[in-house]
Design a protein around this nucleic acid. Structure first.
Lengths: 184, 184
DNA sequence: ACCTGAACACCGTTCAAGT
DNA sequence: ACCTGAACACCGTTCAAGT
């Protein structure tokens, strides 16, 4: 017997996906594991750290292989993969974005984007600005989309959930700007 | 005697700015007003509604006149104004973005952006995608910047706060993409 | 109309103690 | 190493009652 960190994180993701972030409390998670709340603090120093570990695991599970050869197609691929990974679990966007804001996650997609833009011939500064812009767009669209999807699923809602078309269109708009900065 | 909604919202913004969003509890706010917690529910149906009212007031107070004549300069103006308004209060970005996500605020900047892009000759769909992209970029950059600023102010931090230059650069990147979509 | 007092059903976290 | 039991210092919200 005796749980390990990965068991705790795994169960936390189940609770998150089934009942939502607002129901993912330390007490609720402990009960779900048949433990006292205080027992969780043997595996994790606090709730924020647990949420960061959940964010990492969500991204790890959603990670797909890169196939595109061109730098701009690969940038789209990274963003679309990030979006899909977050959409795969209830409130996934919330959890991942919060962890990223606290400097505790999503560093891998950022690194991949920066690499792609540099490979495309963009200067260090433009690649940096472009990377952050692509990440912010991906986070923003996905958070909005997931909120709309969940609101629609929960009941009364009027404004249509937008879908993935608008997301890709937004990313392409930014890539248009980036491509114009490539000096041949 | 007897408070009105605007007194409650005003005091809430003071508490927010001085002690941060995590300290802005209904109980704390009530104490600050010399009231019982239950008294707040006479002015506001719940905390979420109060936060939306705070977001509205933050944007109202930060609102500046529009001066730019060109559509693209005015779009930058709207975004920069939105950013400044959020940065003016501690955790302002958090509060405004959350309200926007719940469909309870920031509808005015969105309307102004849409109008500017349409005036620039962009089709309805491109204007819509562009508006959302500009908003997401503004929100993302500002939230990240404010988090970094506050982390730097609180003590140990290494990564530099980025500043407004990167923000404008990101917005310009997107405008490059939008300008290329204007058919003359 | 605006507020009090008391309660309900929760939180995250700490800490001594057990095995 | 992993967990229990009990406590501390809080939350948002409801509701009967007062003026």
């Amino acid at each position: 017997m005796g749980y390990h960190l990965r068991d705790v994180v795994g169960r936390a993701i189940e609770v998150l996906d089934e009942y939502g972030l607002e129901s993912l409390t330390m007490r609720r998670l402990a009960a779900e594991l048949g433990l006292q709340p205080s027992a969780l603090y043997h595996h994790v120093p606090n709730k924020q750290t647990l949420l960061a570990a959940i964010a990492d695991e969500i991204l790890r599970r959603g990670r797909r292989e890169r196939r595109a050869a061109d730098w701009d197609r690969r940038a789209v691929e990274v963003c679309a993969n990030l979006r899909d990974a977050m959409l795969a679990y209830r409130d996934g966007a919330d959890v991942v974005i919060t962890a990223y804001t606290f400097g505790l996650g999503a560093s891998e997609p950022a690194g991949e984007l920066r690499e792609a833009l540099r490979e495309g011939g963009l200067s260090g500064n433009v690649a940096e600005v472009g990377t952050r812009a692509l990440l912010h767009l991906t986070f923003g669209y996905t958070a909005e989309e997931q909120a709309a999807l969940q609101a629609a699923g929960a009941g009364a809602i009027d404004w249509e959930p937008a879908g993935g078309g608008d997301f890709e269109a937004g990313i392409e708009l930014l890539l248009d700007g980036l491509r114009s900065k490539v000096h041949r």
